[in-house]
Design a binder for these strands. Structure first.
Lengths: 191, 191
DNA sequence: TTGACATACCCAATAAGTTGAGTATAAACT
DNA sequence: AGTTTATACTCAACTTATTGGGTATGTCAA
């Protein structure tokens, strides 16, 4: 249900169109929540039906009307109520770890390659987050919404850093135990 | 699609019943993949139809037949083919971070409480993982499947540790900037 | 003896997420 | 001149996941 609440928070900060909300999922909140444009539009329509948000149609030339959504009092009430409910850790479903577990059933090099590739991806993402962090730190008086968003960015930075470190750990172990059959004692001490 | 492949790897290690596969999702692979019993049964039925696995029905008294699944040659082929495909990082959908972003719209104490609670959960999970790690290290000659599974356990340990550290970071910041209105300069330097 | 827990499976309804296309226009780049 | 990128929203089909029930039986403890 948190998709609706994420959107509520975004709209509570600033009234926006569905398109703009969708962009937030690529930018600011992307480090902890993903949603496709279709999901956003559908959710907004549902939320409007439930009275959590309302929109003002802004006519445009050639394009469909822009719907600027804002949170209603009912929506703010919902946000408050939701604030008191406990949250659960997100279930993890990580393809790469399935691949690692499948290690004995495929060539070692392919696995090493894949971990390398993933390390690079996390490295690149970390760079983007670090830039955003630098931008944030340059703001003299960040607004409360920004201050809290920064905490989520910190989570993103930690997450990527942690992945990189794990990749390095795995690559080291895979290198050390390259041929367990040839030298079983080495392989063993490596683990 | 990785649910099927996770099951394939589990069955490649040891033929098991659906019930036993389901238990693995609570135990060994729980740190990177969750699946309900229903999901497992449905997936196994689908995989059987596709010829990836086959089962031997073991009659039991009073209970339904136990179906012991094993991977077929076609299943092993599928596993090999899948091994060459790249994996994508799992999209993150973290309720707690939505809550943090919603920080300005609820009482500070509630947020602090929630982060505390989550810290405790990650702490407890970490303890469980550390026990499993100790068990693993006590094994003289771990089999290759176990060796690779250990790498995924390392990921779990890192993950939980990382969360705990982030919780501590957030709790520190929330304490420091307890009342930004009263002392804006302190609040600012804290961020 | 009642209730919780473990074994072992199946079914159905709903919710959520993904994929791919379609309707329009305009600016910027190649 | 043609492609990409951006704006702005909609619809339909499909796959996946969740929730909550049901069928059976046996064991263990309060």
């Amino acid at each position: 249900m948190a998709l609706a609440h994420t959107i509520l928070v975004l709209l509570a900060n600033t009234p926006r169109s569905g398109y703009d909300v969708s962009k937030c999922f690529d930018d600011s909140v992307g480090c902890f929540w993903k949603a496709s444009q279709q999901q956003v539009y559908r959710e907004l329509a549902r939320m409007e039906q439930q009275g959590l948000v309302e929109f003002e149609a802004v006519p445009q030339e050639g394009k469909p009307d822009k719907k600027i959504y804002r949170v209603t009092p009912v929506g703010m009430q919902e946000l408050s109520a939701w604030f008191t409910e406990p949250t659960d850790p997100a279930p993890i479903r990580e393809d790469l770890l399935v691949r690692v577990m499948a290690g004995p059933y495929g060539p070692r090099e392919l696995l090493v390659q894949e971990v390398h590739r993933r390390r690079q991806m996390h490295h690149d993402q970390l760079q983007r987050y670090r830039e955003k962090e630098a931008n944030y730190r340059a703001i003299a008086q960040p607004s409360p919404p920004l201050q809290f968003l920064y905490l989520t960015l910190r989570r993103g930075i930690r997450y990527e850093t942690d992945w990189i470190e794990w990749c390095d750990e795995v690559l080291t172990i895979l290198k050390e135990s390259a041929d367990p059959q040839e030298d079983a004692s080495t392989a063993q001490s490596a683990l």
